[in-house]
Simulated assay, not measured.
Amino acid sequence: MLEVFLVFLRLGITSFGGPVAHLGYFRQEFVERRGWLDDRRYSDLVALCQFLPGPASSQLGMALGQLRAGYGGAVAAWLGFTLPSAVLMVLFAFGATRWVGIASSGVVHGLKVVAVAVVAQAVLGMSRTLCPDRARAGIAMGAALLVLLVPGALAQAGAMVVGAVLGWWMVPAASSEPGGDAIPATRGRGIAVALLVIFMGLLLALPAAAMLWPGTIWPVAADFYRAGSLVFGGGHVVLPLLQTAVVPQGLMGNDVFLAGYGAAQAVPGPLFTLAAYLGAALPVSMQFLGGWGSALVLLVAIFLPAFLLVMGALPFWDALRHRRGVQRVMAGVNAAVVGVLLAALYDPVWTSAIHSRADFALALASFGGLVLARWSPVVVVLLAAAAGALMAW
């Protein structure tokens, strides 16, 4: 558990660029560097987390922690990956006026540029393993085209569904055989069922608590839990739900909400830590423990569904993935994941970071450092941040 916590703490400090970039950081760390699992099993977990509602990169981290050190490892992975950005977001809530320019600084721009290199490395590495034939390469290209032409979370989910259908129809069973040993997540199926029951119970119980204690933090926590339970597509998709939970209710102005959204783009780790900012920015009458307690309640409320869902699904995932029909379906889904990553490499990663020849040069140099020189992502991130600050100066 300590090993898992320390590894994810370092990733939580250095993983800039949003959920798509996080998949690249995780793959480089756990597939290439540490060898905790192979590319095919990693992509299986990515596909599972893409199908579940909630923050996919955080769910993937929880799954990796569970495979390494059990349920305690899942909690340790979440703590390590989430803690740095959550603390930064709470501090930003306390001093937003002084930190208002951070999201447009040269350092942050350099971090956005290095995310291009990280995602490009992930697309390159995963395509070699997951798209080795024309059928799966075609599925990946089709998924990329669909997501680019019809932007939004529904298009991403649709690409996964179409990939599953085409995989079942086009991919031979022999070529879709899962590699490596079984994912060792079959322990405690009874616990997994209990976690899924708890998930549904909280989905019903928290709104009841909100009606019993109006004017407290519980109605907001119920809204955040529901957002984490039902939203597909990651952090950007959940923002309208969070805005509806706090701004129309008069808990904060839209300018305060948008300031937190801008800061969330500038910090490492999951975008869902915006919940910590919103908890700390609540009116004084709804805060406790100086705002830190409110931030913790909303942070747990939005991430708890992700934990319950992925821990409840993991023990059954391995049994399903060894059925031949499921293997063909997963081969198609994995190819579609590559296509979705390829589309995301352009939008939003490339479009938000590359605005000049100098930006492209920095992205190319970062890609060379990761792929050719095989430097640590930490080194590449720090060099890109310094280069971004120098370019801005």
Rank of each mutant, 00 (worst) to 15 (best):
V4T: 10
F5I: 01
F8H: 01
I13P: 07
T14P: 02
Q28W: 12
W36M: 06
L37T: 09
D38V: 09
R40I: 14
L45R: 00
C49E: 00
C49Q: 00
F51Q: 04
P53E: 01
P55I: 06
S58V: 01
L64G: 04
L67M: 11
A69E: 03
G70T: 08
G73C: 01
G73Y: 00
L79D: 04
T82R: 02
L83P: 01
F94W: 15
T97V: 14
W99F: 12
W99R: 08
G101F: 10
A103H: 14
S105A: 11
K112T: 07
A115G: 08
A115C: 09
V116A: 07
V123Y: 03
G125E: 09
G125F: 09
R128F: 11
T129M: 07
L130Q: 09
C131P: 01
A137D: 05
G138Y: 05
I139W: 03
A140D: 02
G142M: 03
A143G: 11
A143I: 06
A144C: 11
A144R: 06
L146S: 05
V150P: 11
P151C: 09
G152P: 07
A153R: 09
V162Y: 09
G163C: 09
V165Y: 11
W169I: 13
M170R: 12
P172T: 12
P172Q: 06
A182G: 15
T186P: 01
A192V: 13
A192Y: 10
L196F: 02
I198M: 13
L203F: 15
L206H: 05
A209S: 14
I217M: 02
V220R: 04
Y225I: 10
Y225P: 00
R226G: 12
L230Y: 13
V231I: 12
F232I: 07
G234F: 00
V238E: 00
L241M: 13
V246H: 03
V247E: 08
P248D: 10
L251D: 08
L258W: 15
Y261S: 06
A266F: 04
G269M: 00
G269W: 03
P270Y: 03
L271F: 00
A275P: 09
A275N: 05
A280S: 14
P283L: 11
P283C: 14
V284T: 14
Q287V: 13
Q287M: 10
G291E: 07
A295H: 13
V297M: 12
F303Q: 05
L304K: 00
F307C: 03
L308W: 00
F316I: 09
R321C: 06
R324M: 07
V326T: 02
V333E: 03
N334M: 07
A336S: 11
Y346R: 07
V349Y: 02
S352P: 10
A353F: 05
I354K: 08
H355K: 15
A363Y: 04
L364Q: 13
L364C: 15
L370S: 09
V371D: 05
L372T: 11
A373K: 08
A373N: 09
W375T: 12
S376H: 15
V380I: 08
L382V: 13
L383C: 14
A387G: 08
A389I: 12
A389C: 13
